[in-house]
Design a protein around this nucleic acid. Structure first.
Lengths: 262, 262
DNA sequence: CGGGATATTGAGGGATGTCAAGGTAGGTGG
DNA sequence: CCACCTACCTTGACATCCCTCAATATCCCG
């Protein structure tokens, strides 16, 4: 299901961080090429043949750097770009009428944000960096122009959108039919697999999001998230220290899901 | 937001029903043309210019008729077609590990089903007719071939997928942050608007789905759905007689949503 | 007419939300 | 360097919403 990336993506991230800071929102001078990006196996080019990836290079995506907490786009902004995460973690969220937010997703390196903007030409959700981060800005109209001439590429783009639909399907299932323990287990197992596919440890990691953000995403209150973490720790499934997580019993965690008592 | 269709779609539906029944699953002899379909303003051609709609006609979608309860496709089936509802109502659902189902959507005339199949070449969900129904089967590869040559058409297809993402966003919000009354109110208001856009009454209609199906969709038990209907009736918002619904106070119903106490 | 599916309603219990208090970590300024 | 402040996390006590189980009513279809 997931392609494991064996090369560690950490090296280039460190490199980026050590560069002198650029002016905020100035057009980044660096241009990113898909063909030699360390994330190409999990990102936009995934599934494309060599020739199509080469064509992608002609778009020379501009890069944008964000500080932790900065927003990449906001709901209602004009839709021009989709964004691929190069480094860091993002959340996407919808603004509720009463001012609270509903988190609709978390995004890791290589994942794409903003596809919901195609529908009405405006972003339907907001994207916020959960740590210092780096994205490729992919001009949507140029991408469609390019894929019009290349059936293979067009299919890849459609598939990405469809994948987003499927992703939300499973979240709906989660929100509609699982109890608190099942929700958190599903969240952790999913995150673990995605980290593994990016060359990180699947059993030990640092959460970039708060309990409140996890809760919003999973449809539960932050106190319940906290209590459920504690419960898993008592059951010997996890070791939890604030945001540092070690999965002690992956089998037990996945079994929590299969039970599906409710 | 929705384009009201003034011509009543009822006439042609009645016509179809009076035709002699065809063999089940035999390639239907009737061919449907988008350019003079009564649903063209809410269906696939929505947003296309006249020339592109004409090009759609070249695909000559075959029609498929289903009895109430019959399934159009099942999760895991090979993905070849997307389906546009011509008449009747459908539900889409995911099969849970324990045999129960999670309803992921209800579909009315002109709405498209099956876009989640693009991701992996297999349908990710199942579609079932909730009453005798009629669909256009749109061959996906031929649609993409056609849209490769026509930028306008390609964009329309992308937009449809994006719209599906946005639709699921709002459902996530519903499941993640609303209580039982808000959920049912949101469901009814949404259904009312969609019926209105199709030329039906927005204040009085017949539900095609059971309490259990509504509950599955909204993430609550059928008893809670039933109780909430009764509560709305006592509050003077609705008149309910089994599946026959009359919205007595649309303003009050939408206010239930804005309150968003929880 | 009978049987199965569906809907309504009640009683009771349990999972999760709410409110509150206290602890810890990290950042900032004196 | 330390004190303070803020944001975040944990835990407890209590409240409440919704689920579970059960009985009954109603409708639809054979």
């Amino acid at each position: 299901m997931f392609t494991a990336i064996l090369e560690a993506p950490v090296r280039s991230v460190t490199l980026l961080r050590s560069l002198p800071p650029v002016e905020r929102d100035a057009p980044a001078p660096q241009k990113a090429l898909c063909s030699n990006c360390h994330l190409r196996e999990v990102c936009l080019p995934c599934g494309m043949d060599h020739a199509d990836v080469g064509r992608l290079d002609s778009l020379t995506f501009s890069r944008r750097r964000l500080k932790s907490g900065a927003s990449l786009y906001r709901a209602g902004d004009r839709f021009e770009f989709i964004y691929a995460v190069r480094s860091g973690t993002f959340k996407t969220s919808l603004d509720l009428a009463d001012g609270r937010e509903q988190v609709s997703g978390f995004f890791l390196g290589g994942e794409l944000m903003g596809l919901d903007g195609v529908a009405h030409g405006r972003h339907a959700s907001s994207a916020t960096a959960l740590e210092d981060a780096d994205v490729c800005a992919i001009p949507y109209t140029r991408l469609t122009e390019l894929s019009a001439a290349n059936p293979g590429m067009q299919h890849v783009v459609s598939r990405l959108m469809s994948r987003e639909i499927v992703r939300e399907h499973s979240l709906m299932m989660l929100l509609g039919s699982m109890n608190a323990e099942e929700r958190l287990a599903a969240f952790l197992v999913n995150l673990s697999q995605r980290l593994k596919a990016r060359g990180y440890s699947s059993s030990e990691f640092h959460l970039r999001m708060s309990r409140a953000e996890i809760g919003s995403y999973l449809g539960m209150k932050l106190e319940t998230v906290s209590r459920t973490f504690s419960a898993f720790q008592h059951q010997g499934l996890l070791e939890v220290d604030k945001r540092h997580i070690r999965i002690a019993d992956m089998g037990g965690l996945t079994r929590t899901l299969d039970m599906r008592v409710h």
